[in-house]
Design a binder for these strands. Structure first.
Length: 417
DNA sequence: TCTGGGGTCCTAGGACCC
DNA sequence: TCTGGGGTCCTAGGACCC
């Protein structure tokens, strides 16, 4: 029978840092979000201190100091490189995988017997641990939702869990809906109002009422939880629908010039990504954000526009971004973040020319030169536009580890004696 | 003083049409 | 108390995830 598996890296960002700091293997470690704002990854030791995910760092700083927690700023260059190595290994062993996030992949697997599956998944787990140094958990079950649940079961045990339909039957009375993948705070609340607490409650509720109250998600969830797949891992070929680059500033700013410079940075980032994936965007939107926790929440704004033709040219996109920025910028508002979102993404081999456009269909030499230089000499060796105010819009990363695997200067040295 | 960033999917409701 | 009804298309925003 075809089963669906999930490979999930344990405490992924923390594990990445530990690869280069083996002395921290059994010590409490956290990784902070960008701008050193909130906790985004916790080692098991920190979870046991009772520190929840997403807590602002300043609220736990003292506690961490007492407990001797090691702090890291996010180092996404490192994490995505390690992620790629893990996924490549899984792909080699399993054939097609469906990468769901930086640290998770689904795959399909024929289940001959539970014992056999466990042996195979344990082999994979050991292989990844040995070759890359990242600990994994596996869940195998009839549907994606159940595989996700299964992967949690042995996180702190063997790391390999196979959940059959019979096994699930015995558990579903005691599993609460809020533990299920896809059921968040709002849905849990709504379910409680209808007296649906456990999975068994939900599965025995009337079908048409479930559809009415919870929409198609409700119907799909029932199917998934009954062991009938309603979603399928789609394979590697699915393409991304939007590309986004946004960041908070360490301090707020009211200056349009500063905002424009930050927007230019994100435009460059996002269009670089288009070019490296050989795609173009047909639509661009920008956002100017204020502090979400202040009285300025509602003063932020977004603006978007359809481009006359899909493009990945930083200069063309920059021009549009500047125009949009002027339309929503409001004087004297303290802005805290900006961002650029590119969407309606198409492959860049076919280009639909606007009938009245004077744009020639040529690959942009300037852009590829810039990309090549930046790739070999380091990001932002060449930038377009000025960089006068970088101090005003950059963010904090006071605890960042080195770019061990992606920068020549940071490659670790080994001392042989 | 200090509260992430990058995604996806779904739905309600407005605009518009006949 | 009672507003026509039935469509389509688009978008902002909600919900969720890691």
């Amino acid at each position: 029978m075809k089963y669906i598996g999930l490979a999930d890296c344990n405490n992924f960002f923390v594990s990445c840092e530990r690869v280069f700091r083996p002395d921290l293997w059994d010590k409490p470690v956290v990784v902070l979000s960008s701008n050193d704002g909130a906790i985004v990854a916790r080692s098991q030791e920190v979870k046991e201190l009772g520190v929840p995910m997403g807590v602002p760092y300043f609220k736990v700083r003292d506690e961490f100091e007492k407990a001797g927690v090691t702090i890291f700023s996010s180092n996404f260059d490192l994490y995505s490189d390690i992620s790629k190595r893990v996924m490549d290994t899984l792909r080699e062993e399993l054939g097609v995988i469906y990468q769901y996030s930086v640290d998770e992949s689904f795959f399909k697997m024929e289940l001959k017997s539970v014992a056999e599956a466990k042996v195979e998944l344990t082999r994979l787990k050991t292989l990844v641990q040995k070759n890359i140094g990242i600990p994994l958990s596996f869940g195998l079950a009839p549907t994606m939702t159940l595989a996700k649940y299964a992967s949690e079961l042995e996180k702190r045990g063997s790391g390999v869990s196979v959940l059959t339909l019979e096994g699930w039957e015995n558990q579903k009375n005691s599993v609460s809906m809020s533990e299920i993948w896809g059921v968040g705070g709002a849905t849990t609340k709504k379910m409680r109002e209808h007296n649906l607490i456990t999975v068994a409650d939900f599965l025995s509720a009337d079908n048409s009422r479930v559809e009415k109250i919870f929409g198609v998600n409700g119907t799909r969830l029932r199917s998934e939880l009954s062991g009938i797949p309603a979603k399928m891992p789609e394979g590697d070929e699915v393409k991304q629908k939007s590309i986004m680059s946004t960041r908070s500033f360490s301090k707020t700013t009211t200056s349009l010039a500063v905002l424009e410079e930050a927007l230019a940075y994100h435009t460059a980032r996002a269009s670089e990504e288009l070019r490296s994936s050989h795609t173009k965007a047909g639509k661009i939107s920008i956002l100017l954000g204020t502090n979400r926790y202040s009285e300025w929440v509602l003063q932020g704004g977004t603006a978007e526009s359809m481009l006359p033709y899909p493009t990945n040219d930083t200069i063309v996109l920059l021009r549009e971004v500047e125009r949009l920025a002027h339309t929503i910028y409001t004087k004297d508002v303290p802005y805290k973040k900006v961002g650029v979102v590119l969407s309606q993404i198409t492959a860049d081999d076919h280009m639909q020319l606007d009938l009245f456009s004077s744009q020639k269909e040529d690959d942009n030499k300037l852009m590829s030169v810039i990309d090549t230089v930046n790739k070999s000499l380091g990001r932002d060796s060449i930038t377009i536009g000025r960089a006068r105010y970088k101090e005003s819009w950059s963010h904090n990363h006071n605890f960042r580890s080195q770019r061990y695997t992606t920068s020549w200067n940071d490659i670790p040295r080994v001392n042989l004696k």
